[in-house]
């Protein structure tokens, strides 16, 4: 098994952190992982993205030009990464930040209203955990338990009291993701 994921959005949305927590979840499952961020001008106030690979065997290239799964959190990210999904791949987007919905018919498309739900919960910071929950619901590559373990590893101890809230957000994300389109296999 090898899952190649791109997560892309605006700087500050927690894209890189989400990838890191996912990667730690992978380590907890005994998988090999790589986490390759954009660290250039994008990170300094533009789009930010991270490539996360989880695999049962040694991972060769950490950079790719085709992905199994893409989580896109703004229009430029959708425009850039939707064409790079493999046929049968998975696209997850938040409708609040997408003007032109995805058009490819050979991929599985899911929407998750993470931004509005985070606003309802009056906690903008759980935005990325809602998305992470949505991801692992439709692509069960790591278990919720291992992601929570990942949170323990990623967060400094002084923030560990926030873990239950994040876990709750992950579980809520699993509930609110909906399939928009099923891949048409030719």
């Amino acid at each position: 098994m090898q899952e190649e994921i791109i997560i892309s959005g605006f700087g500050g949305q927690g894209v890189l952190s989400m990838g890191k927590i996912l990667a730690y979840g992978g380590i907890m499952e005994g998988k090999e992982v790589t986490w390759m961020p954009s660290y250039g001008p994008e990170q300094r106030g533009g789009t930010a993205n991270v490539t996360v690979i989880l695999s049962d065997k040694r991972i060769t290239s950490p950079v790719l030009n085709a992905y199994d799964t893409a989580i896109v959190l703004n229009q430029p990210s959708l425009d850039r990464f939707m064409p790079l999904l493999k046929p049968g791949g998975t696209l997850i987007y938040d409708p609040a930040s997408i003007l032109t919905p995805p058009t490819r018919t050979d991929i599985n498309t899911y929407s998750i209203p993470a931004m509005s739900e985070a606003a309802n919960m009056q906690n903008a910071k759980v935005f990325n955990m809602l998305l992470l929950g949505g991801l692992i619901h439709v692509r069960p590559i790591v278990t919720v338990e291992n992601v929570v373990q990942g949170l323990h590893k990623t967060l400094p101890e002084r923030h560990h009291h926030l873990i239950p809230m994040n876990e709750q957000a992950i579980r809520h994300g699993m509930e609110i993701i909906t399939q928009e389109h099923k891949a048409e296999v030719k």
Binding site: E32, V33, T34, W35, M36, P37, Y39, P62
Partner: peptide, 10 residues
């Protein structure tokens, strides 16, 4: 290099 330096792995 920048990719080995910035990349995270186990």
């Amino acid at each position: 290099d920048g990719s080995i330096g910035q990349m995270m792995e186990k």
